Simulated assay, not measured.
Amino acid sequence: MEFPSLVLLCVAVALAVIAWAVLRIVRRRRIDAQFGATVSGGRGGHIKILCGGRPARAEYEVGTTVDFLVYESSLAWASGDPLTASDKQFLADTLKAWSAARGSKLEIANDTQRDFKGS
């Protein structure tokens, strides 16, 4: 008698895991559509997102403690127009809001400051 109930429990757990995975995928796609975002690549790639109605892009890598590690130097408008400091901050805030909404961790790494010593 115990064997059928164990099988039913395993089936119920498997169905719950599948339902969770499907709901997570659907939720992420809905959030991506809301922000006009697309992610391409694997361990490294590009994020394209609408920022104030303008398409922007950023390159990412997969970090050890974050899902997306974005370097500040990769933030750009998709058209190639230069980013102002306020544009860069707005784009960073938009990326952070997008990642939080979809349940991902994102870090913007500051790789633009260089400390060169004169020779």
Rank of each mutant, 00 (worst) to 15 (best):
F3H: 11
P4I: 09
L6M: 11
V11I: 15
A12M: 10
A14F: 12
I18Y: 08
W20L: 13
V22N: 05
R24D: 14
R28N: 14
R30P: 01
I31L: 13
D32E: 15
A33R: 15
A33P: 01
Q34P: 01
F35L: 04
G36W: 03
G36A: 08
T38K: 04
S40W: 02
S40P: 01
G41M: 03
G42P: 01
G42S: 14
G44E: 15
I47W: 00
K48Y: 06
K48E: 10
I49C: 02
A56F: 03
R57F: 01
R57V: 08
E59C: 05
E59S: 12
E59L: 09
Y60G: 02
E61M: 12
V62L: 07
G63C: 12
T64M: 09
T65V: 15
D67A: 05
L69Q: 14
Y71L: 12
Y71G: 01
S79T: 14
S79V: 02
D81E: 15
L83I: 06
A85E: 13
S86W: 07
S86N: 11
S86D: 11
Q89G: 04
L91C: 04
L91Y: 02
L91P: 00
L95C: 05
W98T: 00
A100P: 00
A101K: 11
S104N: 05
S104A: 14
S104C: 13
L106P: 01
E107N: 03
E107W: 03
N110M: 03
K117T: 11
